[in-house]
Every structure is written in structure tokens, then in C-alpha cells.
Design a protein around this nucleic acid. Structure first.
Lengths: 232, 232
DNA sequence: TGACATTAGTATCACACTGGTACTAATTCT
DNA sequence: AGAATTAGTACCAGTGTGATACTAATGTCA
């Protein structure tokens, strides 16, 4: 190794203001919806907000995100993952210099209730938000889309038992395109991810569908071939 | 939507100490190596450190990461992406409550020099590090491995022109397994990612290899089938 | 009641992709 | 010259993909 005579000054930490911002997502109609809070003061600069709070002393970011999620949902979300830290110039409603953002998934169904002053809004039809909250929502959706075939996120958007058509709808929702039914089921079968229950659901018209549950059987080394799906 | 009578208190921000920690990676031999700094004081609690600093006032995290990278490399890395924020109880060398971590990629070759007091260490043979620095390195490697087929990260670990065998070696390094040569090249061809130069490189023994450059031709909607490669 | 719409689920089949094996090509080493 | 080494290609059986079309089971409506 060649060496240059630069010298590293010993760094010291500096304080800044921080917030934990949570994007809670649930499937709604044919789209994803995010939970927004209406500002208590109607003359506030931001009418709508993501749920957020400052981390308490000695509270880890994921603990704070769980606490914020519980406070608005009344229960923990089915999944909660960090999205990223945002600290650029975009304005935060609490003027935090740094935001650590999380995305939580809420199953479709009656659990989608929320507290007073909150509303599920489709992510394609966001109202005016603080600029940083807007980019956080976009990043959260992107994170879920990217991780969908690495992590069982799709199953977190469904109740414990579901039909294969519902599962396919979630995948189509997240991937943004329609999928081939037979291929989808063949791949699902090959991955040993679900198992059928002995229940059937009759949803209005049409033939009843069998209900399945998420029951992954560990498959070691499911080695896939290399794919060059470069986005940029 | 059903409404409960919970009330959201208006949150206020709180200050905490923060650091920007940078993991610089380069291919070395048959492994990945990370740039570590040796502590100036030999009696310091941590003998080895990741490059880090506190963000300056009004400096965004990615700007700070770029600044830290430049200060130890003498130049910008070929890629720089955020890994995650870490704020659990694990100790940071500067006792920062929150770490925003970044991973930078440095091409193989003469640009892998570094400043005095720094060393490239294989990621499988890390010395004793502060606990948070250890998990940051592990997370950084994992991020690169996960994003390899979504983002042209592999090309950032190579100089501007390279042989296809070198490219395949990088993929094998990151994926941790060997790949089929013909399949690798077929997939590469189909993705329109590289183009041949008119140069050839004779590297000691064996037939000379043609040099290629990264020249992606945008292919819209390269739709792949769904794969259920769930890790957990 | 019976035809029809609707949704679930399967069968068939041409086509494309994967990866093992084996080959040719061009260079250095001895 | 011949062996070793690395680059690159050809062949091919097996497997995955997705279009089309089918059967199955229910509700709707005349």
C-alpha cells in the first residue's frame, strides 16, 4: 500500500435534531394506502403528516418506530422495517435535521382501523405533505417493491389465511403489472411457501376459493441464476 | 373507518449525537476488503475504526459521507449508497447515539491506495472493532450483495474496461458461489449491459481476453417472472 | 329452471432459458 | 514441440414460462 502523509483528525460527535417517521401501508382497493394524520391545528403549515415522534433517550430507532406505530394503530404492524435516513434540506414538519424512516405493513381487513384524525390515503393520491414526508413515502413504497421477492412482505399485507388470487393481487399491486396465473402458482408450489387449509371462501360470485396459510418450509440454497435487472 | 378517541400529542424534536460511518469496499484477492483506520492513540479503546465523522451543520448525510470518503481515499469512490441508520445500544467509537452508515465502492487496481494509518482488511478477517462498526460492516456487505442485480454495483468495483472473466469473478465474489460461464455471458448479452472495446489484455498465461466497457442500453420493462427467493 | 356471467383452478404445448459437458482458440511455460 | 492455462463457443437434455384453452363451482337474471 502506498502511503500519503494526510492526517486524520480525531472526529468528535455533534448533536442534531432527529425524528422517527413511520409509513404504514395497507392494500386498499387496487392500490396501496398510507396512514396519514390530520394536523390538530387547521392553520398548521402541514395539513397532513406521517406519524412521527422524536426518539426518547436511550430508545433505539426501531423501538421508537414500533411505539409510534402502536400509538396510531392500537397494535403492532405485521412487519416493520427501516427505510433510510433522510437529512437533506427538505423540510420536516417538526424541522428535524435528520429523519430515520420506517415502513410498516398492515394486513388488509378489519385491522385497518386507525385512531381519530387519521385516514388511509392511496399513495398515488397524496395530499400536500411536507417535502421530506413526501420523499419518505415514495422511498417506503419503493423499498417494499424491491424487497418483495427477498422477504415475505406480501404475506404481511394479508390476513393469516387467504386465497391464492388474493396473494397474486398483492404481488400484482406491488409489482405494478399483471401476472400469469398458472406460472404464479407453479412458482409458489415450487418454493414451498404456502400450505392449503381445509377452508374455502365464497366471495359473492364465482367458484369458491381454497384458503391457504403462509407456512414456509426452509429450502436451503435455492440458487437462482444471475439476472441483470439493472434499474439505473 | 372506525374511530377511537386516542389523541395524538403534537411531537417535538429532540437532539441526539450523530455520526456518519463509511464502509469503503474493494475487491482484493478472492475476497472483499474494507478500509480501516488505525487509531492514532495506541491506548485507545478501539485499535481500528471505520472512517467516520460528525455531520457538519447544514450538511446532508450523503454529503458528509462523500467528504469522509474523499478524506481517506483522496478521491471520491465509484459509488456511494446509504446502508441504514443504527442507533441501538451497540457502542460507537465516538459514542454517537445514532450512526448513519454508507457503503462506498472502490475499483480494483491502483486507485486502491489509501492514506497513512489505513489498511484494506478482508471482511472475513476483521480485527476487533467497536460493536456498532462491526454490524455496520456486515450490513454494508449485505446491502451490496442484495442490490447486485438491481444496481450496477459490480461494475463500480472494476476499472472502466475489464474482461468478462473479471466481471464474472466480481459476481462470484459477491454472490458467494461460482457461476456458469456460458450462461453468465448469455444473460449479459441479453441485457445489453456491456460493449466490447477493440483492446485485448494478455494477463500472463493463457489466451488474451477482450476488454469490455460498461455501456448499458436502456431496456424498458425488462419484465422478469416472479421468483420466491425468500430469505427468511 | 336454465342460460349466462363470474371466479377458481388445471391441461396442453411451443418456446426460451439453464447449466453440464465438451469442444476450439490463443497464449505462456518448460 | 508439447503441456498447461485461460478465453470463448457449441451442443443438448432438462426445466421453466406463458399463451391458449379448457373444466369446475358458484351467483344472477330472465
Amino acid at each position: 500500500m502506498r502511503e500519503r502523509s494526510l492526517v486524520i483528525p480525531r472526529p468528535t460527535v455533534r448533536t442534531l435534531t432527529a425524528a422517527i417517521d413511520v409509513v404504514l401501508l395497507t392494500p386498499r382497493d387496487r392500490s396501496l394506502a398510507v396512514l396519514l394524520l390530520r394536523a390538530a391545528d387547521p392553520r398548521a403549515r402541514d395539513r397532513w403528516l406521517l406519524p412521527w415522534d422524536a426518539p426518547r433517550p436511550d430508545e433505539a430507532p426501531d423501538e421508537a418506530a414500533l411505539r409510534v406505530s402502536r400509538s396510531v394503530l392500537g397494535a403492532a404492524p405485521a412487519a416493520l422495517e427501516q427505510v433510510a435516513a433522510f437529512g437533506d434540506g427538505r423540510r420536516h414538519p417538526g424541522d428535524a435535521q435528520l429523519s430515520v424512516s420506517f415502513v410498516g405493513l398492515v394486513p388488509h381487513g378489519p385491522a385497518s382501523d386507525a385512531i381519530d384524525g387519521a385516514a388511509w390515503v392511496e399513495v398515488d393520491q397524496l395530499p400536500l405533505l411536507a417535502p421530506r414526508h413526501r420523499v419518505i413515502v415514495e422511498a417506503a413504497v419503493e423499498v417494499v417493491r424491491r424487497r418483495i421477492d427477498q422477504s415475505p412482505l406480501a404475506f404481511r399485507l394479508l390476513p393469516p389465511s387467504f386465497t391464492l388470487s388474493e396473494l397474486q393481487s398483492i404481488y400484482e399491486l406491488l409489482l405494478g403489472r399483471s401476472l400469469h396465473k398458472a406460472s404464479f402458482r407453479r412458482a409458489l408450489q415450487a418454493a414451498f411457501l404456502v400450505e392449503p387449509t381445509d377452508e374455502w371462501r365464497s366471495e359473492g360470485r364465482g367458484r369458491p376459493a381454497q384458503l391457504y396459510r403462509y407456512a414456509p418450509r426452509r429450502k436451503r440454497g435455492a440458487r437462482r441464476s444471475v439476472r441483470f435487472d439493472l434499474v439505473e
